[in-house]
Design a binder for these strands. Structure first.
Lengths: 104, 104
DNA sequence: CTATTCACTTACTTTATGTAAGTAAGTATA
DNA sequence: TATACTTACTTACATAAAGTAAGTGAATAG
């Protein structure tokens, strides 16, 4: 490589640029959700969702909470680090509203 | 699917969430660049770069300009639609500066 | 000539994702 | 008391996407 890109930015992109990740975070910005809710809302397969949620937990972006009811309830939510991605996703939303046609 | 995500946002994510796309756009925000410059700066393979530039051209985000010099010079730059992704990428950069450690 | 550069393309390998079935723990129904 | 059903996954296998490396054609340098 000749020059190089800011390594923090590159790492941020590395995290967010995996398929489904941004959509999962976007979904969790609405509030905490269960596995099958995320699965059915965004249309990701369970196999990949499970993988992504683990990655995001490791990155400290998502928190997994187990509620010991019967039956047990497991909810995923954003940490502070995750919540603070909101301005970035908001900007993508603004861009989309301006530049993406509703029918494409 | 139970509910559904805003289709414009989903489409925006569909475009941007392919591997390398965001990095290519980020790179072109610096100014127009040649194929091999992008290739060597971000470390993407020629095979994928070629594919992505074509996709981004179709989306109206990137413009390909041929300068008929000897040897011919081909430069890629952002259209207005592409440039207007800057605020979104800026927000990712801000997030990265706050939340990503330099050594990870 | 021969070598080299640029902007790609092609062929082949490796990795990522999708699909579908399976599992374990518990609840509800017949 | 079976049987079926739900949730939150995991596993096995098939397909799609990306990486690697070599090749192409046009031009220019030595």
């Amino acid at each position: 490589m000749d020059q190089s890109i800011c390594p923090r930015f590159e790492r941020a992109i590395f995290i967010m640029n995996k398929r489904w990740t941004t959509l999962i975070i976007f979904q969790l910005l609405e509030g905490s959700q269960r596995f099958c809710e995320i699965e059915s809302t965004i249309g990701v397969s369970g196999r990949v969702l499970s993988e992504r949620l683990k990655d995001l937990e490791k990155e400290g972006i998502v928190k997994r909470s187990v509620y010991d009811e019967t039956p047990v309830r497991i909810e995923y939510s954003l940490t502070e680090k995750g919540e603070s991605l909101k301005p970035a996703l908001d900007q993508i939303q603004i861009w989309a509203e301006t530049w993406i046609e509703p029918n494409s």
